[in-house]
Design a protein around this nucleic acid. Structure first.
Lengths: 349, 349
DNA sequence: CTTAGCACTCCCACGGGTAGAGTGCTAATA
DNA sequence: TATTAGCACTCTACCCGTGGGAGTGCTAAG
């Protein structure tokens, strides 16, 4: 966890204070200011330390006669330190959980989660539902619509519901639809949607299927249903208006155009999902800072996220904000919400 | 439609050109510039006209020695003129409609619609689904979950699906759930959700209900289901990143903080819905410009919206942007998309 | 009613000059 | 060897005055 073993203890502490101060005040931190923070050394000494830190890439100067500002590497050390110290300070979640419990559906709950994590962290917050393809089938239903179309309702474990309209090539009577649903439910309940899809296709190939016309028709219906079962998980995002609070402010890095790219990414949520798929393989909190991102348009933003699991599938909660973000607050928010979700889905399932 | 009858024809034409120019260029329009636009009069005359227009409140000067800028009242006359001229220039929608047709569910389609209207108008676009309470019940389903909870799936006419988890006070066996669903479907299919809710409550009061225990239990279940059937329609919004394009620009009215309030409203979509409920009683295109809004935080924004209908219920499509918006483009976008939806839901139902 | 001419007003971009903050360096000190 | 006081240096941000220029309103003539 703790990289940077070469850095002397005192330098590290000073860097910590510096980063913290910059995060809070948004202005380059001067040696004089640091001296007033009770290190027991003079500003001159701190200047020496800062020069060293700069050489090593932890801080930089906006211009010659200005204080120091953390680099992404500096932030990195800071959050590593933060994470190392925290250990078990994992706050529970008092009344927020009650609010979540009131949500009717998983979707509702996650929508609230994204809102809460945004509020708590003062950043853009998001919550991602587990990928539908991995959840297990609970029940399948067909509802006939006008014009030969069918509404298919798929209920997955845990109360996830998805639906779509299909336009089958054959005609089905109402009774037959009922039968088909019964047959498919009986046959495939409890399997993952992905597995169902595979099984349906396999069985359609088998010879003996040919003898049972009804079954064959049911299977064909199922295959149209599952052919593109949504691979993109649902994403909830809240707090975008909070972004603008930072922009006018002190941070000159945070221009309108960078913000725009972030907003854009938020709109096409699929990108966010891909992003997280890349990073979040590990359990627990994941933090990606500024230039640590692969994508160049995220250079000025940091991500704090955590996975959650309902036993079978994993989703994610997190926040996105400027690199100069209150990491401790963000980490707390993300962790507590992620724990809250885990508890919710466990009791819910 | 055309208010402002007192304004002479020529003045009106000049105002039109002025507004158009300001919308496109974003800079105060000078008498000299107008003179170059072939009115056959000199700049001095135009100065006289502009002075008159200013007296009447159609334009104003940012400062003494600057050109004129339209006021909200000026924009109003401009769009009224625009709408009056348009008449039947209603463009159809060529390949966009094809894209919409690919959408699986109504929700998907509206999501695309909001995207398309945003793209076409270069503004924030939105699409609102008809209020669920007014659609008619097609089918009701209960799916038992763990822990005594129930997943209720409500299918409304046109393929709208909503679902929620309820925690009934009584226990229900799987067979009974099936029975209850059958009973309720048979009894209430085809009525509006609001009517169903009323009918359920009424019937619960009736004496004879007491004799049929199963029926009573079914009705109690239904009443928990419908007690808070979602009154807030679904809203889809896209194009928020486009907002930021304008902000850095020429328009000094458009500050970050006003933008923030707009973003906030977009996030709590309910406000948008209320707003539209207020304005959109009428059929056809509705336009609200700047200070015509009741809410003070919308003073700098304009709304261009249109309702659509599937025969029973009405939803809305529209865009929101700065008062200095390309109204003609916005109107075209909104109208064509609204027509497209209408056609879609008609063929879909 | 239109128009040429003209004086007037106000914005804005430019430049210089200065105060102040903060640094790096050097030399002295523990 | 690490710390510190002192000092010169650098850069920014701000203030202020100033001139050019754009655009107007007004007046008087057509």
């Amino acid at each position: 966890m703790t990289r940077h073993p070469e850095l002397p203890e005192r330098d590290r502490r000073i860097l910590g204070v510096l980063v913290q101060a910059y995060i809070e005040q948004g202005e380059p931190v001067s040696s004089l200011w640091l001296a007033s923070r009770g290190f027991g050394v003079s500003s001159a000494t701190l200047r020496n330390v800062m020069a060293r830190l700069e050489e090593q890439g932890y801080v930089r100067q906006p211009h010659t006669s200005a204080g120091r500002v953390p680099t992404d590497q500096g932030y990195r050390l800071y959050v590593d330190q933060l994470l190392a110290e925290r250990r078990s300070s994992a706050r529970p979640t008092p009344q927020i959980e009650a609010r979540l419990r009131r949500a009717g559906t998983v979707g509702d709950m996650l929508s609230h989660v994204s809102q809460e994590v945004a509020r708590a962290s003062h950043q853009v917050g998001f919550a991602i539902a587990p990928a539908a393809e991995m959840t297990t089938l609970e029940r399948l239903d067909f509802v006939p619509l006008d014009g030969g179309k069918l509404l298919v309702i798929v209920v997955a474990a845990g109360g996830h519901v998805s639906h779509k309209v299909v336009n089958p090539s054959e005609e089905y009577g109402p009774g037959e639809l009922q039968q088909a649903a019964n047959y498919l439910n009986q046959e495939f309940k409890g399997r993952s949607l992905l597995a169902v899809r595979r099984a349906v296709l396999e069985r359609l190939q088998e010879e003996r299927t040919l003898y049972d016309v009804l079954m064959a028709r049911a299977l064909r219906l199922a295959s149209t249903t599952f052919e593109d079962i949504d691979v993109t998980p649902t994403v909830f995002i809240q707090g975008t208006s909070l972004m603008l609070d930072d922009v006018g402010g002190e941070d000159p890095e945070l221009t309108l155009s960078t913000l725009r790219t972030l907003l854009k990414m938020i709109e096409e949520k699929t990108r966010l999902v891909k992003l997280l798929d890349d990073y979040i393989s590990t359990e627990g909190i994941t933090i990606v800072i500024g230039s640590e991102h692969h994508a160049p348009d995220l250079q000025h933003f940091s991500l704090v996220a955590s996975t959650y699991s309902d036993g079978h599938n994993t989703g994610a909660v997190g926040v996105i904000g400027p690199t100069r973000m209150r990491y401790s607050r963000a980490i707390n928010a993300v962790e507590s919400l992620s724990k809250a979700i885990t508890r919710m889905v466990k009791t819910n399932t």
